[in-house]
Design a protein around this nucleic acid. Sequence first.
DNA 1: TTGAAAGCGCTAACAT
DNA 2: ATGTTAGCGCTTTCAA
Lengths: 344, 344
Amino acid sequence: MTEDELGPTRPGRPGLVEVAALAGVSVKTASRALNGEGYVAHDTRRRVQQAADRLGYRLNGMARELRRSGNTSTLVGLVGGDLGNPFYSKLASGLEREVRLHGLQLVTVNTDEDPQSEERLTGALLERRVRALVIVSTLPGHRHLAAEHRHGIPFVFVDRPPTGLAADAVLLDNDGGARQAATHLLEHGHTRIGIVGDFSRLRTHQERITSFGATLRDAGIADWRDYLLEDAHDVAAAQRAVTDLLDRDPPPTAIFTTNNRITTGALRVLRGHPCPPALIGFDELDLGDILDVTVIAHEPENMGRQTARLLLERLDGYTGPPRWVILPTRLIPRGSTRRLPARG
Amino acid sequence: MTEDELGPTRPGRPGLVEVAALAGVSVKTASRALNGEGYVAHDTRRRVQQAADRLGYRLNGMARELRRSGNTSTLVGLVGGDLGNPFYSKLASGLEREVRLHGLQLVTVNTDEDPQSEERLTGALLERRVRALVIVSTLPGHRHLAAEHRHGIPFVFVDRPPTGLAADAVLLDNDGGARQAATHLLEHGHTRIGIVGDFSRLRTHQERITSFGATLRDAGIADWRDYLLEDAHDVAAAQRAVTDLLDRDPPPTAIFTTNNRITTGALRVLRGHPCPPALIGFDELDLGDILDVTVIAHEPENMGRQTARLLLERLDGYTGPPRWVILPTRLIPRGSTRRLPARG
DNA sequence: TTGAAAGCGCTAACAT
DNA sequence: ATGTTAGCGCTTTCAA
């Protein structure tokens, strides 16, 4: 009675059938017309286009891809810890730009550094048939991804290397960076150096701490672990850790923080301190130059670009052995390490 | 000859047919077993699971959703200007968390504030049948989305309101914030105040500048536009604009910057200046407290959460009129405005 | 230049 | 407890 004119017999959105019906052509012709495939009469094309506009037709990408390849989408997945952290957001930004220029879209999911979330979310992306997967992993091992990897889905691990899986990776020279930091402090005469690290299970932080400590040890500081505090994952925990260090007797004359969040926490504590220790942090800060804090810098956006490169080459058919790209770090000396090691 | 045992007649990834064949059951039984639907014999379930594991089977989410709803995915799209900007990444972070808790995934795309990109990317997400779309729009009008909107896809506009489309929005009290900023500077005795704004076509910035200017005008400063510079979209442009202002004779005694990026640029210029003007910026900065800069603050993560709320309620069936949530801003007075208006 | 039929991988509906 | 059939919306044959 009511659905005469446009007569969408089915509910929901109009599909190619409805468009074709309204235009008075076959489904395939409608498809051809809208996709600009050759051999459609001018007039037909116009009628189909009108029908589509009138109905508010929008192609269903899922159906198209299901039919076309049966198996892959134009999505690239990024599984990371916390998009709110500048490190991740810049990484994501660099990656997104590159893949976008190749017609792919980035789907970003947060794990909050929770291993279980990582497994679940990775699975969800795989089910969605992402073309490739980029992972900043918080899991200790990656054998569970072996089957997918064999099926040809490119994986690129960022910041933390894969374990038990021969996949590509983009990493930082944590060893070099930590040594630069330690050397810098030693050169300034520091010998009691506090170290505040993130989750001890994260290999990245293990490396930074190990290399930093090794450098101190080589310089004759055998008991460097006395001033080591780990598992300071958020700013508040970092503030507590730094406060703890400063309350000791004697307090450290310098502090090394292993990532941007911890450095932030340290800055908050040091800000009100009468005679603050020297400070050097891993990761550049947003306004590091103005804050005048010495850092071990690197370029997260570039990590994103490198990641995209590895990934796109795999999608282009490269089937060689896994490649690990190790990006350099750079010491930027600033005011926070110009303070001398005044006796506590 | 060769493909005997597992016998995947078709190439590519194994599907339910292959799993079912290997387990010696029907496709539907395999489906039931893997999905944990009732009424599958223990033994059958086990055999199916083994077959799936052996084959490296992974459900095809596109096919599932195509069949299940025919029309919607579990994706929520976010179209924004620049994920690398802390404002966007925090917004995205807040939004992502909320939708994730409701079983949805966020797809983020960057427009680089380019209107054409916005249209193209919005279309791509719509084709992918996102359940809802969040847009920080750089377009002047939104009528082109009317059809989709009528088809029931929830749209939430963030930071910049929709034009020509009756959709939900989460906005900031730009008027209030700008007036707070102006009043604060006036109270400190400033009368020559520089203003540096983003793209003049962005309504958000128009509002901030208009309200700021109106407040100055009401205080008797008729020629406030003399110190107005717009279209400083990136940090470099902001630095140039601020430098320009400071080179004038007489220079302004205070500067108002309309977003975080511009404030950053201003800080870089002011840092080396012998007698810097007072500074107040819209948007909180990452380490604003330590940088000691007065800001008009708000909470991007909260904007993300509010956005999620509107969106989820729509998905839950709410069909009332559009709702605009206007979030308050807060003046945080800090050192950068304690400087008095010394005569230039 | 156009159309009919088959099928991508899965699940809903209805048997058995 | 398990199997059969049909069909989601599109595109790929193949035919007219």
